[in-house]
């Protein structure tokens, strides 16, 4: 089974040279830590920076330089700042090659829910609806089950949707799954995790091929 860093490491393997990548809050943010040294990749944060770097050294933090999670960050050489309309032009206009975000629920038709639990939690969608409506390549990073132990991979989402039919790939603590033809397809299993336990933890329709390789995580 993977921890949060393990999920981020596996997703980092999806990133290709020359890509602009938007990372959401939580596990997705960790992906930046596992990009191979020397690979030309730029991180976009929707509050208005391209070329986001690591957290600043203690004492160098700047209140005017944050990411979408409101964390203090740094800017890499070649970075650029811009306003929110320009930022979402990059996103809606499909100039960003990969979006990685978290989810509360994902359905087998690619629907995603991650912004509201009616009557309980309403934080807002932030940029998630714009991101999922436009991105060609969306990977969801999340735990396979919620805190109550219920599967987050469902036949249909029960929570208010963030986007419809948009998720292509899900990486969880148990597996890598693709979404196509209205079903989850098991692609890889996490180290030490059996196919049976993934089947059991997945509430939606899951297609399991004859051979399911184990993820290679260093």
């Amino acid at each position: 089974m993977l921890d949060k860093n393990g999920i981020a490491k596996r997703i980092a393997q999806e990133v290709r040279e020359g890509w602009y990548v938007n990372l959401g809050i939580g596990i997705p943010t960790l992906v930046a830590n596992f990009i191979p040294e020397g690979m030309e990749v730029e991180f976009q944060s929707e509050n208005g920076i391209l070329g986001m770097g690591p957290f600043p050294m203690e004492g160098d933090e700047d209140a005017d330089l944050i990411n979408a999670g409101k964390q203090t960050i740094t800017a890499r050489p070649g970075a650029v700042y811009f306003d929110s309309a320009t930022s979402f032009a990059m996103i809606r206009g499909q100039h960003v090659q990969l979006t990685v975000l978290g989810a509360m629920e994902v359905a087998q038709n690619g629907d995603i829910a991650n912004w509201k639990i009616p009557g309980k939690m309403v934080k807002g969608m932030g940029g998630a609806m714009d991101l999922v409506a436009s991105a060609e390549n969306i990977i969801v990073a999340m735990m396979h089950a919620n805190r109550a132990g219920a599967s987050k991979l469902l036949s249909t989402c029960s929570l208010p949707l963030t986007g419809v039919g948009c998720v292509k790939r899900v990486v969880t603590n148990l597996a890598v799954l693709d979404i196509k033809d209205g079903a989850f397809h098991l692609v890889e299993r996490a180290p030490g995790v059996t196919v049976e336990s993934i089947v059991e933890a997945t509430a939606g329709t899951l297609i399991v091929p004859d051979y399911v390789p184990e993820m290679r995580i260093d």
Binding site: E46, A85, S87, F88, V122, M125, G126, G127, M129
Partner: peptide, 22 residues
């Protein structure tokens, strides 16, 4: 204030908010 209904809230996607202002 929102859950008690004292405050009216209209939540809209961030990119739509930016573009609506623009």
């Amino acid at each position: 204030q929102m859950l008690s209904g004292e405050l009216e809230v209209d939540l809209i996607p961030q990119g739509s908010l930016a573009e609506r202002c623009r």
